[in-house]
């Protein structure tokens, strides 16, 4: 297996140009929404709004303004599949369409997926959705086809500010620590890394440098695997089945006894 590869996204240098979104859509030949008819969100400069089956990259605009709009702050974050080391989508997929590649990334094989949508509900980050053209669940592949021939993913290639960094996880972690130290030295005490260590789903192969709480960026503070509920749910259901059987025995046996 090749060395694990991924993204380190430094949100502090993202300028919201959406070049990554465009590069992703172009390389992966993703269709336009509404047949290309522009729809404005109406309450944000961001009109993509969220990741889905035809938007595998999304530059989030966190627009924080005072009510009179005299004071304001923009946070930009290019969001993408986290390629979790312990991936919830892969755990639940009933067709085996979701696989882990030799680069330790998580890929949905569109020709095997039957569109059951279990992975959409299982993803702790709301990354996956159905591509209406293929009828299957789709998300970022970390440009598996490009990586196979030694190219970097289209989004990282297009990023003009090096907000999206691509490389081996080992190198990216070193880069992230260096940048974190640099920010802390310059007085930015809120900076922290999200998903860089194993405590979060075994580690995210796409991790972030943030300058506010994860919730502000629309990221879950404590993402979990869907399987955490499997054992307790199965246990309670089994107890319920036992209780129903006992109730059945008493309900039906009494009748039989009376019949004799």
């Amino acid at each position: 297996m090749a060395e694990p590869m991924g993204f380190f996204t430094d949100t502090t240098v993202c300028i919201g140009c959406k070049a990554c979104e465009v590069a992703c859509k172009e390389w992966n030949q993703l269709p336009a929404r509404n047949g290309g008819i522009g729809t404005l969100s109406g309450d944000s400069y961001d009109n993509t709004r969220h990741l889905d089956g035809i938007h595998w990259r999304h530059v989030k605009f966190v627009e924080q303004f005072s009510p009179d709009r005299r004071d304001g702050r923009w946070l930009m974050m290019s969001d993408v599949c986290k390629h979790c080391v312990r991936a919830g989508c892969m755990e639940v997929c009933p067709t085996g369409a979701i696989i882990r590649t030799e680069f330790d990334t998580v890929v949905i094989q569109s020709d095997a997926c039957n569109g059951c949508r279990d992975c959409i509900a299982a993803c702790p980050f709301g990354v996956i959705d159905i591509n209406p053209v293929s009828g299957t669940a789709q998300k970022c592949t970390l440009c598996y086809d490009r990586m196979k021939v030694g190219l970097e993913p289209a989004c990282a290639k297009a990023c003009p500010t090096q907000s999206i960094n691509f490389g081996t996880i080992t190198d990216l972690k070193k880069l992230a620590q260096a940048r974190l130290g640099q920010l802390e030295q310059s007085g930015e005490k809120r900076a922290h890394l999200y998903g860089d260590n194993e405590s979060m789903l075994g580690g995210l192969n796409s991790f972030y440098l943030l300058v506010d709480k994860p919730e502000v960026y629309g990221l879950p503070p404590d993402p979990k695997l869907p399987s955490r509920n499997l054992k307790p749910s199965a246990l309670w259901s089994t107890l319920g089945a036992v209780a129903l059987t006992i109730l059945g025995v008493f309900s039906f046996r009494e009748r039989g006894a009376r019949d004799v």
Binding site: H50, L51, D52, R117, D118, I120, A121, C123, P124, F125, G126, V127, I128, D129, I130, E215, G218, L219, P220, P221, D222, P223, K224
Partner: peptide, 13 residues
């Protein structure tokens, strides 16, 4: 807020 509120709906209707 529970982390489950950051997910997407599977459109099971």
């Amino acid at each position: 807020m529970s982390s489950t509120f950051f997910t997407a709906s599977p459109h099971w209707q």
